[in-house]
Amino acid sequence: MMIYDINKLNISSSHPCLIVYLVDQSYSMNERFGGPWRKRADAVAESINDTIYNLGLSCLSDNGLKNRFEVAVIGYGAEKDVVQSAWIGNLQRSWVCTIEDIFNNPVDTKNDKPVWILPKAGHNTPMNRAFENAHRLCYDWINFGNHLECHPPIIINITDGEATDSGTKFTRLKETVHHVKNLRTHYDAVKVFNVHISSDRGGKVAFPMSEPTHNAAFASLLYDLSSELNTSMIERANALGYNISQGARGYIFNGDSSDLINFLKIGSDPI
C-alpha cells in the first residue's frame, strides 16, 4: 500500500504545486495603506508581483526555469459582481499559468523586477463567486495529468472587507469554502488562507490557534474559512517573528503592509 507522506513530497516540475491568489478589487481598495501615496490595491499588486518573483527564484535551476509552481490570480469586484482572471497582456484570459509562461510574459518592469499584476479598485466584493471560481479551477487542476499525486493547491484570499454576495450571515460563502476545502490530492486537502488588510491598527489577529474574540463577525468567519498551516509554514512564520505553533491557522485580520508581505511569503512556499 502506498503511503502518501506529504513530508516526503518534493515539489518539482514533474509534480508541481498550484497557488491561487484571490484578489479583492473592490472600491475600498482605493484607500490609503502603508504610506501617504500608497493605496491598498497598489500594496496588494506589489506583494503579489514580489511573491511571483520569489517563486521564480525557487524554480530557477542550472538549465533555466522549472515549472515547479503554477499560478492563478483571480480578481473580484473590479466591476459590479465581476470575477475574472487578473492576468493581463499576453496572459490575459489565461487562468492557470506555469512559471515559465509567467516569466516569458511580464507586462512591465519596476526596480528592475518584472511586473505582472496591476492595481485595480472598482466596485463591490463578490467573494463567494470568487471562491466558486476557485473551486471549479482547483477541481479541474487536481484532475489534470498526475496532479492527484502532487501537493494540493493553495488558495490565498486577500481582502479588505466583507463579502457582498453572501448575505448577512455569509452562509453561502461558508458552504462554498467548505466545498473547496473538501477537494484533495492523495497527499492532503486544498489549503485556504485568508489575509484581511486594513489601516485599523486595533484588533489585529495573526495566525490564531482558536477562534478570535473579535467584535467583527467577519473576523470569526475568516477564521472558520482558513486552513491550518503546515510545519514548514509554521517554521517560516516563527522565523518572521510571529511566534506560533502547530494548529495555527493561515489567517490574518486587520493586517498591515508588512503582514501582507509576510503572509504571502509564508503561504506561497509549502515546502
Partner: peptide, 22 residues
Amino acid sequence: YIQERPAVLPDYYNEAFMKEFN
C-alpha cells in the same frame, strides 16, 4: 515521468513592444 503538461505559450515577449510601452 514525462507527464501531460500544458503547452507553453509561444514566446511573445517582445523587446520592441516593451520599449514603446515604456
